[in-house]
């Protein structure tokens, strides 16, 4: 079929894109793991990050990569009031109420994007998005490599935050036993708020990277939500490096699927894999503990 160079390139692109996917999936994963919340607005957070990168560039001329920290902050500052006003009051009303609220949020955000920014397909246009990096037969856009490096760095940082810091032990304690955590003095609501902000920031920063690497529309979120679920299911919930592995595997499979069947099948590959793994092994392939 295709020549070996094309296949090799597809594999490498898959790995690199998979790293970026893993960063966004991490946002979904920690919110699910710590708050037991299926954040159905996750995809919109990701798209919001992409728009933030776009407008940052258009309005201020600031390169989105230089503004990543700012974008993370923007997303966190959107997420904080959402948690405070919408989710925290539902804390004791069962998981479905919160999930449905994020669903409501998702359709609000999606349609706000259309109303405010039009339904056009956008891309954050930078030189490094189109100029390829060539090493021998390999040729991948520079942004793939940059995005991958940034993503893996951030994932490692989040891992260290969770395993080494005091906030991390508060976070793990709150995830294990919220009531006992509160009783020993942890402000669980604050931990949840910060977790939600952290998750949104991961999604947003990942969204910016993806927005540079690929294009996006107001309704791209749903597909990324599902892809990220596939990553979590592959990698195991609450396992930071599992998420990274899940992202890489999925990225490669998507590339291979796209190459073999046509580009339209990329997302389908993820979904079919997701459904298959979910119904065969609901707890994920790599297990579920950190």
């Amino acid at each position: 079929m295709a020549n070996p160079d094309v296949i090799l390139n597809a594999l490498i692109s898959g790995v690199l894109l998979g790293g970026m996917l893993a960063l966004t999936a991490l946002g979904l994963s920690i919110i699910l793991g710590v708050m037991r919340l299926v954040n159905l607005a996750h995809g919109e957070f990701l798209v919001a990050g992409a728009y933030a990168g776009l407008f940052l560039l258009q309005w201020t001329g600031l390169d989105p990569l230089a503004g990543l920290a700012l974008i993370g902050l923007v997303l966190a500052s959107i997420a904080y009031p959402i948690h405070r006003l919408l989710l925290a009051p539902l804390a004791d009303k069962g998981p479905e109420a919160s999930m449905m609220t994020t669903f409501g949020l998702s359709i609000i955000l999606q349609n706000l994007f259309v109303l405010l920014f039009s339904a056009d397909t956008r891309a954050i246009e930078r030189g490094y998005a189109t100029v390829p990096l060539e090493i021998g037969p390999l040729s991948v856009p520079q942004i793939y490599v940059i995005g991958f490096a940034i993503s893996v760095t951030l994932i490692t940082a989040v891992h260290l935050l969770i395993t080494r810091s005091r906030f991390g032990s508060d976070l793990r304690a709150s995830a294990d036993q919220p009531q006992a955590a509160a009783i020993i003095g942890i402000n669980v609501r604050r931990v949840h708020a910060l977790t939600f902000c952290l998750g949104a920031a991961c999604a947003g920063i990942g969204g910016t990277l993806i927005g540079v690497a690929l294009s996006f529309t107001p309704t791209s979120g749903a597909a990324y939500l599902l892809t990220d679920f596939a990553v979590i299911v592959l990698g195991g919930l609450g396992n930071v490096f599992g998420t990274l592995v899940g992202g890489l595997v999925l990225g490669v499979l998507q590339s291979v699927g796209g190459l073999a069947l046509g580009d339209g099948y990329r997302d389908l590959v993820a979904l079919v894999l997701f459904l298959a793994v979910l119904s065969l092994r609901p707890q994920g392939v790599l297990g579920s503990r950190t």
Binding site: R166, D170, R172, A173, A180, I184, G185, I186
Partner: peptide, 16 residues
């Protein structure tokens, strides 16, 4: 008891 499963013994103590 309500021990935190994902924390080590010492972390369980320190977190309090």
């Amino acid at each position: 008891r309500r021990i935190f499963a994902s924390l080590s013994v010492e972390e369980n103590l320190l977190v309090a």
